[in-house]
């Protein structure tokens, strides 16, 4: 990289740190940043200045009901998470309590899908393919496996906020891997993801992730389904 190239991007640095670049500009800057140690160093230097900005705001006391409603919601979710995971653990010991790959959060993989149940299985149709259907948390899940690939079909998926996408994951030999499949439900709540390599996959999962996807699941799966071996 030339000095002038660095200089051009260096002008963008403060705007980037302040979140003031347009999305395409920010994407381009991040691509440059990945290969420019000088920019990374300058950004590290400027970042604390941005972090002081929220601290400069005049303090306004939050209303007490905010804490109350927040904690009520959190306690309810914690209770539901316990109820979902604890009773199901013994009968789904294989494939549900997952060993995460390095850096993956175990909590994200304590599977909400344990409430699912199998409603159909076709081991003979589709030219030797396998179809497994389940209903998981109100979502109809159909996993069609043909040869080494598969298609995950969902119906009844709630609409997502505009900054969210669905991301598919597989558990393979005890490790969780991202599938290069980001997708969103259509207006009828249907969504589909293709999984190119189903070899040795024991579980397929879907989580809600920020637009652009994540390197690891950031929340509990909305769908998790064991795959027949």
């Amino acid at each position: 990289m030339s000095a002038s190239d660095h200089g051009r991007w260096s002008d963008e640095l403060a705007a980037y740190a302040l979140g003031a670049l347009e999305r395409d500009e920010a994407d381009a800057f991040e691509r440059h940043l990945a290969g420019c140690e000088r920019c990374r160093e300058e950004l590290r230097w400027l970042q604390p200045a941005v972090q002081t900005l929220p601290e400069s705001v005049e303090r306004t006391e939050p209303p007490p009901q905010l804490r109350e409603s927040l904690m009520a919601a959190v306690r309810a979710e914690a209770r539901q998470a316990r109820e979902r995971t604890e009773p199901a653990a013994p009968r789904r010991s294989r494939g549900w309590l997952l060993k995460p790959a390095a850096g993956l959060a175990v909590v994200a993989l304590l599977v909400a899908g344990a409430v699912g149940y199998e409603v159909g299985k076709d081991g003979a149709g589709n030219g030797g393919g396998t179809t497994v259907e389940r209903q998981v948390g109100g979502i109809d899940v159909k996993m069609v496996q043909e040869g080494n690939s598969g298609t995950l079909q969902l119906a009844g998926v709630p609409q997502l906020p505009p900054d969210k996408v669905l991301e598919a994951w597989v558990e393979r030999e005890g490790k969780v891997e991202a599938v290069p499949a980001l997708f969103v439900p259509d207006r009828h709540g249907k969504a589909e993801a293709r999984i190119a390599d189903m070899s040795d996959v024991s579980t397929v999962m879907v989580t809600e992730e920020p637009r652009g996807g994540s390197d690891q699941p950031t929340g509990e799966p909305i769908v998790a389904m064991a795959v027949p071996q």
Binding site: P54, E55, V57, E58, R59, T60, E61, P62, L66, R67, L70, M71, V74, R75, E77, A78, A81, R82, A105, V107
Partner: peptide
């Protein structure tokens, strides 16, 4: 991350005021 409400409550008590002030601003 392990869904501990007590830990979360402490986090809110420490930073909820700054968070609300920023949001209000």
């Amino acid at each position: 991350g392990r869904k501990d409400p007590e830990a979360f409550e402490v986090l809110y008590d420490r930073h909820g005021g700054a968070a609300y002030s920023l949001a209000y601003r």
